[in-house]
Amino acid sequence: MTADNLKRLVALLLVLSLAYVLLPMEYSRSDDMVSYEHYVENWEEVGVSNLVMGVLADWRLYDSVIEAMIFFTGVLGSYLLLEDESK
């Protein structure tokens, strides 16, 4: 087995295991304590009137920070990729 095929096998196993874990997850609102209700009930805890910003920049700040880093990587990648080699 070559290295490329091994990489493909590892990727396939990763995708299959992630699909096995993530696809059956339950996102319905029928449970008694779900995140939507937690956010609305503890609105005063954040202290901002824009609840979307409260979720994005306080409770889920790690998402926003990593999103900013992904944007940074995208800028870096497009800057390197679009380099004009004729000059």
């Binding site: 005063e44 954040v46 202290g47 901002v48 009137s49 910003m53 409260g54 920049a57 306080d58 926003s64």
Partner: peptide, 20 residues
């Protein structure tokens, strides 16, 4: 966190907005 609804409130959320 300051007073609810004022421009300077919410701790570091305004700072984070400016930086982003």
């Amino acid at each position: 966190r300051g007073t609810f609804g004022l421009p300077i409130s919410g701790g570091m959320i305004p700072l984070f907005n400016i930086f982003v």
